[in-house]
Design a protein around this nucleic acid. Structure first.
Lengths: 163, 163
DNA sequence: ACCAAATACTTAGCTTGCTAACTAAATAAA
DNA sequence: TTTATTTAGTTAGCAAGCTAAGTATTTGGT
């Protein structure tokens, strides 16, 4: 492979609507999981919040969970309200900071969580079909790079707006 | 690398919320482009539709464009209505099928399209920073596989529901 | 000690994906 | 040919992301 080939590849790449492909995969992914857990009263936002609270550990604040999920507080706040309403989660006062809430699973939430983990792992396995661990690894690294690039870009744009 | 390592890798993979990472990248990607074209009266759905109509070629039906975008007709229908309202697109009757509409850019739409292409290519370039063409290629292939896996999964689930 | 700025969270309202339910036209079956 | 099914498109309303704006604490500067 020569440099010229690389340059041509690069040009071709810029034409491809990869962003849209990413969006499509994202929607399909979430639909697949939601279909698998529909009996649990879980929507996309709900099971996502449940699973990530588990990753982060009980007692996390809403702010911490929002960061983990990469979404804004208002989006999460609404979903957490629903999960509290459904008796899946509890918001307990933060021991030192009166503004903050810490999140805990209720007993019912624990049960649901167990099923969620089980089923989502099955789905993930199906989604990774014919992909080698190395390929998945590379995929994650590439996405990570693009995520950082996008954040950097947004910061630049925001700064320009403030001139 | 032994089979055992692969198996462990696989198990570890299943724990990682890759779906969420994909969603995050998708949102950041769209935000980055939208920020770059905000002066053109373009929202995410609008510039996406414009660019893909260009890829598909003028005269495409709404159905064809929806398929290209991987979204449902109602989602597209709304956006196209806005673009017609903004004098970017025209819906002309299909020559033989009276149900269908064919999509064409207006002169104003053509102008906007040119700017859109220019700016989105710049953004894509920035997003691909530090990624080799080969890495992008692999990324697209991996996403493609996952997309097919997800579709297969949804078909299976839908069939089960109809028992 | 006190007032300004930042932070945790909520509420309100927009955008854009979706499904469900409808109309009108085209196609297939009887 | 006439009727049933499929297809192109729309409208209505839900889900979940977002920003903007408000409240209540906390932190920081003077």
């Amino acid at each position: 492979m020569t440099d010229t080939t690389d340059l041509n590849d690069m040009k071709a790449m810029l034409q491809v609507p990869l962003g849209n492909q990413i969006g499509r995969v994202h929607r399909l992914w979430r639909s697949a999981i939601t279909a698998a857990v529909q009996s649990l009263d879980m929507t996309e936002a709900r099971w996502t919040a449940m699973l990530h609270l588990q990753l982060l550990g009980e007692g996390a604040t809403q702010q911490a969970l929002a960061q983990e999920l990469g979404i804004e507080m208002p989006s999460l706040s609404r979903t957490l309200g629903q999960l509290v309403e459904l008796d899946m989660l509890e918001r307990r006062p933060h021991p030192t900071d009166k503004r903050a809430h810490c999140l805990y699973f209720t007993p019912a939430g624990q049960q649901t969580l167990t099923k969620l983990i089980e089923r989502t792992m099955q789905i993930r396995q199906a989604l990774y079909r014919d992909l080698t661990p190395a390929a998945v690894q590379q995929l994650m690294q590439a996405l990570d790079l693009m995520e950082r690039n996008a954040r950097a870009l947004l910061v630049t744009t925001a700064a320009e707006d403030n001139l």
